[in-house]
């Protein structure tokens, strides 16, 4: 035994000690309760299988988080390939002489007299969160990290292995969708 104390695993205590932490870590990235719960469960089950590989160098929590991180990246990749070809609902012409111009029915229309005082509203909050949950997963993850967790672009770049310009394109698409979703479900209702 070396001077440095080795960390040990105690799976019976995992739920009590780490479920909340891992859940918070996940929900702030996915904003989806059930999906977050499933990923936490998968993390624990994968950790059980991998227990013999635990060398005791990192703390139990750090080790579990590293497994969870991989699950989140997998989730991200999965959605990436699923949604890759589904990007048909675009807002701008992609080719021709109108390239880069608004497609007429996607362009912003007037929202009436919405003011600061109308922001505090439970129904609006619900609609907004539904719009966010309706985003394709990869857009949701990147958008939330940037907007809610206030991550630096570089941190997201490291966590999800994306280039900065890629991140901005993703955020751009997410915000276009969110604006449109709020227009259709709130401001023009």
């Amino acid at each position: 035994m070396t001077d440095q104390q080795k960390h040990v695993l105690n799976p019976k205590k995992w739920v009590d000690n780490y479920a909340d932490y891992l859940f918070n870590y996940t929900i702030s990235r996915l904003n989806d309760h059930d999906l977050a719960k499933d990923l936490v469960q998968e993390t624990f089950l994968s950790a059980l299988k991998a227990m013999k590989n635990f060398k005791g160098q990192a703390s139990e929590r750090t080790w579990l988080v590293s497994i969870l991180k991989r699950k989140i990246i997998d989730q991200y990749r999965k959605s990436n390939s699923k949604e890759g070809q589904a990007e048909v609902r675009m807002s701008f012409y992609k080719t021709g002489e109108n390239k880069g111009k608004w497609i007429e029915e996607k362009a912003p229309s007037n929202w009436g007299n919405f003011g600061e005082k109308d922001i505090e509203n439970e129904e609006l909050k619900k609609t907004l969160n539904q719009c966010i949950n309706g985003l394709p997963e990869k857009q949701r993850i990147v958008f939330l990290l940037k907007t809610v967790k206030n991550y630096e672009t570089e941190e997201i770049s490291n966590e999800l292995q994306l280039s900065a310009s890629n991140i901005w394109v993703i955020i751009h698409r997410a915000r276009l969708k969110l604006r449109e979703c709020m227009e259709n479900n709130w401001f023009k209702n």
């Binding site: 909340d20 859940f23 702030s28």
Partner: peptide, 14 residues
């Protein structure tokens, strides 16, 4: 402004 006011996913619990 709406995002800042209304989006706080960390308030969810198991």
């Amino acid at each position: 402004k709406l995002f800042k006011t209304h989006v706080h996913p960390e308030k969810e619990h198991l």
